[in-house]
Design a protein around this nucleic acid. Structure first.
Lengths: 202, 202, 202, 202
DNA sequence: AATGAATGAGATTTCATTCAT
DNA sequence: CATGAATGAAATCTCATTCAT
């Protein structure tokens, strides 16, 4: 929202979008480690120099891709939170392979790209805060149905379990997945509106 | 018996150990992405060719380092499982920054190094299975004190939450950490021997 | 139209030509086995990376050089075939040390560079076919003056004998060369227009 | 015959023989260019240093292999020359793919290994001389049945044509092969004993 | 807005060879 | 006889980046 014309090649360039999209695909298909201006260019059918024209340094490109990925995550989360059954929708988002795999790539990238890392850190914090806020609002007292839980803890716990499942699936590990999923489902069940106390939604 | 396929420079070489250790440090300090024969050599005060003498390919080196890391994890886990309060010890292990940070590096590595990935996949599955088996033995019926939980689910859940906390700490994110930690501690408390039903500690 | 797949640095680059020429010289002087980006660069007074800029892989470079060598051969053969005494001119071409030595280098190269080999195979077949066609046209019935010969056989036989002579000369072997040359010359004599039957040229 | 104990590791070592054989195979399968002490060692299941123990330099090894290949050629040629129909047998040898392919490899090797080249040059000359001598003896006057031919010329011509056919077959080129083969067969037919004049064989 | 040219650095790997044991 | 260790050189290739047009 703050954006526009931050660097060479205004935000509105189709080429610019093409480059970002090619990078995204490259990350998804071959991992962030195989992103290089040359490969991105080849992938997009452009000359390497053109990539540098839009993104002077590789960091610039990667940060932009992170930004886009985060924005997409945000949209999906907002959608989830706005849905009929926000909790379950969110959980589905957490165990969605495609998105989480990308999130892990970004995490790994953050590990070695301070620029990306800075962006990710800030965004993660915001995202978590946003979730906690929504959880509080939509769950209200119902959070007490899960002994000891509160909104912030629940947010991290769901995210952590979801990520673990996706990560391990990527490795081909599956022991405990069905069981953990069942446990989470049970929690979600308990937190659902149906129950003895009719929830007053917003 | 010593494990590992026979390669150049039998297991018992000081130089070999030096190389592995240097690589380990390098990964810890600068991330797996910055491992290269050159850098490892420089780090260890050796010539690059010598690194290749012991580890013909970079994969060989990284798999060896993975193997060592895994062995260390195994030892720590076994120690935890053998301790007075195995559950709590294991949880501590899961949220131990130094080890988990390394584990994340390996995970990221696995993402792009099939050789490492294969090793990790196999090892992870074994490790999980081992934990589940021990959980079953040491917890017995007490697992029912946590509604809906079973050993396999618990194992994955603790690992997932622990990993999430450590990962986010690495990013500087902290919302929800204290809360999630409190929830886990509560679970551990409930599962502990003390309680209304006297546990028969073998 | 200029042939060759589009690559870096359009056909019209002086640097590109320089690299190709340096490679050619290197092959002539020290054999194809001594072609390496480094040596080519040194030979051309350029940086190794620049060679890679124009020819991403060594195969690319060698195929290009093959192509050029073949084109030169083609020109020489066409010239020979268009001359007053095409047969004798062609034979001279076959025993021309400088060209044939290069051809042998390419042959050896083809042995181990599939890319070069593919190109050579196709080109050789075409060249032979072209020669046979011309032989048929210019010799007509006169081929019958050599018992048992036909155009295709003659083409291969001349090429084979010529190549053998050149190859052996390269080794310092000479027994039989004068004799074989005399035999070939006799054939050519017989096939020449002069003779009992007046040849109608073109 | 002169041989024995020229270098470290007397001629009679099984290991030595193993190394030479492995090299031979390597040349046949992957070409002389891929011969390196390391690869030879790997191929033979030995350590690189052991190869160097028997053959201090790579040249030493290659010359030895050339020597052996030449000896084998010699044996085959002697066998051919001693057979019922020496000429045809020799021609068969010339167009024998496996041997000629090796001979080409050696030729190429000679191009860049002075040591090999020196050996090859001397041996080729001897071989040709030997053939000429035998041709003279077994053909006697019958050589005149081929107009203009003599023993030395015939020897080179057969070798040249045979080599050309084999070389081109390697490339997948085939135009003219059948025709040239037919011509050579015709020559051999003419030179055979059967005919108006009964040959007095030794 | 785009691109061809160029470059220095570095990664990965293979090599022949030497040496001490 | 045999081998493990070590090394310097080189080959091939990829990279990010700069610059002039």
């Amino acid at each position: 929202m703050a954006g526009a014309a931050r660097r060479v090649g205004a935000e509105t360039s189709a080429t610019r979008a093409l480059i970002v999209e090619a990078t995204n695909q490259l990350i998804r298909d071959e991992g962030y480690a195989s992103v290089s201006t040359r490969r991105v260019a080849a992938h997009a059918g452009l000359k390497p120099s053109l990539v540098h024209y839009y993104f002077p340094t590789t960091d610039d490109l990667l940060v932009e891709v992170s930004r886009l990925g985060a924005a997409q995550s945000d949209r999906m989360i907002e959608e989830a939170l706005a849905s009929e059954d926000p909790l379950r929708a969110l959980w589905k988002f957490f165990v969605d392979t495609s998105r989480t795999a990308m999130a892990l790539e970004f995490m790994a990238m953050a590990n070695h790209r301070p620029a990306v890392r800075d962006y990710m850190a800030q965004h993660s914090e915001e995202m978590r805060a946003r979730q906690v806020e929504i959880f509080k609002r939509i769950l209200g007292d119902r959070i007490d149905r899960l002994e000891g839980f509160d909104a912030a803890g629940l947010s991290l716990i769901l995210a952590g379990i979801g990520r673990a499942i996706v990560m391990e699936e990527g490795l081909g590990v599956s022991t405990g997945h069905a069981e953990a999923t069942r446990i989470v489902e049970m929690w979600l069940e308990k937190l659902a509106f149906a129950g003895d106390q009719p929830g007053a939604k917003d």
